[in-house]
Design a protein around this nucleic acid. Structure first.
Lengths: 209, 209, 209, 209
DNA sequence: TATGAATGAGGTTTCATTCAT
DNA sequence: TATGAATGAAACCTCATTCAT
């Protein structure tokens, strides 16, 4: 009379539970944003009671911040700025890589941008974390752009990096809204080209002056 | 709660109340997004009881949709695509005008983008309304771009329009995150130039082939 | 055709609801103290849903403070310090009256003393209100004692008033713990006598010195 | 959470943990009462996980009872009724000693009185324990008072003891509310004197009759 | 001699909404 | 043209407690 293995999963497997919670929270938060992510919904999706979520995370803010943190880790493994290519190919390559990264893990960006846009009285830890992550991407872009040539002023480098990031954000949104009608890879290529041309034009203008 | 002694301009009060509610809702929704906007908070901010909000608007969805609708009206008065300029100045002019429009009424864009990013099970009317408004802007851009020259394919026109819009969205976000460190006018000029150059390059390539 | 007054009690009868809530809250709070009074229990006892309690009171703190406030009103109608008796009977009379007042409405005192004893990080409004009420009783006692004779120093007046109040509090507690084995009226008489004798002794000592 | 590297004094650690828990629980319970004392708060204050508290104590009731029990022990070492003094000094001496005891360990009294005042459906063990401790003090007082003279009836002895205790409780509360404005030692002296005078008056009245 | 992890019940409060007036 | 009052559902979070290790 071998009854089915009832699996009283009561043994301590905290790491797995934490992961399950984060998975559920990531999925929901990426779709509905901060306020739209309810602990109850996360609980329902991951199967653990709400009170168990509070064993692993101090509060909702802590949970969403952990979601951003982990998503950023995943994102980093996808979006690797190349270090050894020659200068003139750099921006194009970054553009293409970024297109792929955006396509591969849109959850991170969607949630991050939602957080970035919100202006609530007390800034959630999650937003701060995303902004900080974004700042790192910005600095990496500055470094890449600086390598294009010594003729660019720091202001120009910063402007180009801002424009590079803005294009990426905007194209992501275009894809979100437009769906399949938007060819993200082509658009990122276009963006990379535009950036490169703009940089060259700036360099030329600088030298002329 | 109503502290003024009942004035008797019965006729106009309805419209005024509606306006007060919309003002409050706009402010809150632009800061906190759809879920973050509670009827209670709107009521507290505009001074009218929650039940009065339901007299003016069917439900929360209807209220937020009205917010988008009215904001779009305001936006249109600020962002006027020029119809009669000669082709080569067109994009730059649009770019500069758009920069000003973005700076003037960020609430509309912030709320709209938040709505656009969210993916909730039943799409709010407000989101549909914003997407539709955006589509109109997209079409206006296409028309402008088409006027640059007959050599551009429809695919290219569409791509350029998408890129134009994406740049605007991205630069708006950059401004939201970066605050005073971001010079929106300069960046929109850069964006306009990049668009124009890209369009010219496309035309050249088309003719060469 | 007068049909039976079906009383769809949905019409606005806020004052009655408020009273029902306060009645329930008073009963529970007097038995269990601040923390022991849950909104859920009040809701169950008064029949209104918990959310309705929040229509009438801002939060739990506000509710308990209102309980104290109303109870104090009731208490005042029971405990009236006599204003026109001659000096030498005054304390005894007050003592007897206080005994009756304590016996008549123990809820106010029990809750008040519980609040007074607690030392929570943020002092509840209810505690502040009770302490303030108590201060008024203290001042009334001071006035009464001052009338006993001009020979008492202010320090002595204050000390006697403190002792008078302390005796009342202590006897109330004795009654709470001892129940029927404690004859409150006799003890308050004893307390009044002791106070009076002490006052006389003080006066005598003052004059001797 | 446990940051010290596991020391191996296995033997003594049990008792030490118990003490740490009791210390934390005493502090919290003396400030917030029974319901206000949560296992989580005790755990946070003493640094041991909640489950460890349940290893040392059966449940919350057991914990608070242990707090009262230990506090009473400490109290007894402070408040020693003199056994060998002559009758007429006795009450005064007790009064002064009690003032000091009250000043030295207010936590015990505060918690005890809070427990005594509460009226919850199932009486906590801690309340029963405090009431029983109090009964012992009551009996000691009776013995002391009885020694004042054989002329006092048992009713009078009981009444005087009740009044003695009530005064102590009331003065403690006065101190709790009034803080530094209350001179406890002077008031306890006054109380002792009043008791002594009252006793003498009773004896005189008895003999007169 | 502990403790990490879990859990159901219940805590306070806010939610969107309705309805009688 | 409003609004005072009510309401069930759900929000976030804490509760006392258990149990396998």
């Amino acid at each position: 009379m071998p009854d089915q293995p009832k699996r009283r999963q009561r043994r301590a497997d905290g790491e797995l539970s934490r992961t399950r919670i984060l998975d559920a929270a990531t999925e929901i938060a990426a779709e509905r944003g901060y306020e739209g992510t309810s602990i109850g919904a996360v609980s329902a999706k991951c199967g653990l009671p709400a009170s168990s979520i509070y064993w692993h995370f101090k509060d909702k803010d802590d949970l969403i911040a952990a979601v951003i943190e982990r998503s950023f880790g995943n994102w980093l493994t996808v979006w690797q700025l190349p270090d050894d290519v020659i200068a003139r190919d750099r921006l194009m390559e970054v553009a293409t890589g970024t297109a792929k990264a955006v396509l591969d893990s849109p959850d991170f960006l969607r949630l991050g941008l939602m957080l970035a846009l919100e202006r609530r009285p007390v800034e959630p830890k999650a937003r701060a974390m995303f902004v900080q992550v974004r700042q790192r991407a910005f600095e990496a872009l500055q470094t890449s752009i600086r390598d294009l040539g010594p003729a660019l002023t720091e202001d120009q480098v910063s402007q180009l990096a801002t424009y590079a990031l803005a294009g990426a954000d905007g194209l992501f949104i275009a894809k979100e809204i437009g769906g399949d009608t938007v060819d993200l890879v082509a658009l990122f290529a276009l963006h990379g080209q535009a950036l490169y041309d703009t940089a060259l034009r700036m360099i030329a203008e600088n030298e002329q002056r």
